[in-house]
Amino acid sequence: MSEQTNIWPLWEVFVRSSRGLSHVHAGSLHAPDAAMALRNARDLYTRRNEGVSIWVVPSDAISSSDPDSKGAYFESPQGKDYRHATYYTKSEGVKHL
């Protein structure tokens, strides 16, 4: 008990709403462990009847894309309209597409 870390680790919270199909990122919180993170998430993010299921993930377990690589990552698909179905004209004789 010599060195204590006084800051609880950060967790990301995902909540599935009562009629939603997927868990959606709701926010972050601090908690000493996963069990308490779930409880804190319940208290912080489902107080107004928002959810029926909660996931918590340690924030440091999430790898994210580099904001500085926005160009290389996300701008290169721009203008490539051949990647969209609307680029193509319907072939003659195809009734159901």
Partner: peptide
């Protein structure tokens, strides 16, 4: 002791 616990006890 923590903001999260503040909300828990408040609830």
């Amino acid at each position: 002791p923590e903001l999260e616990e503040d909300v828990a006890l408040g609830n």
